[in-house]
């Protein structure tokens, strides 16, 4: 699949800055600072890929993921979270996340993940 637009959903501005620096310049990105803002951005921005944090005030990443998948089951969502508990990783994979990566992200892993998703469908 072709990936042009990537939506970053994380309440931490620092986490968004770091993630943005890991994503090659050729991709268009949009940032959302909450699950609610992320869902709004889906309609406006129409991303090809979403990076989503789990621990957020208000709507957390689990609920956001569930809602994204209800709206567009085929949209790849990669979890990027500090929460590395097996229970959390299993839950997001059951909810349909493409993968679950740990924070802080490594530029090489982010680039490879985007490449893998682009080549997967």
């Amino acid at each position: 699949m072709k990936i042009n637009k990537i939506l970053l959903i994380d309440d931490s501005p620092i986490a968004r800055i770091i993630l943005k620096k890991c994503i090659p310049m050729e991709y268009e990105t949009m940032e959302a600072d909450s699950g609610e803002a992320g869902l709004d951005a889906l309609n406006v921005f129409k991303p090809d890929l979403v990076f989503l944090d789990l621990t957020m005030p208000g709507m957390d990443g689990f609920e956001t993921l569930e809602r994204i998948k209800k709206l567009d089951a085929d949209l790849p969502v990669v979890i990027l979270s500090a929460d590395r508990q097996k229970a959390s990783v299993s839950r997001v994979l059951e909810l349909g996340a493409w993968n679950s990566l740990k924070k802080p992200p490594s530029p090489a892993i982010i680039r490879q993940t985007i490449k893998d998703i682009a080549g997967s469908q």
Binding site: S12, A15, T55, S81, A82, D83, R84, Q85, K86, K102, K103, P104
Partner: peptide, 9 residues
């Protein structure tokens, strides 16, 4: 956030 996430794991 990262540190406590790691600690919880």
């Amino acid at each position: 956030n990262i540190a406590f996430g790691s600690a919880s794991a």
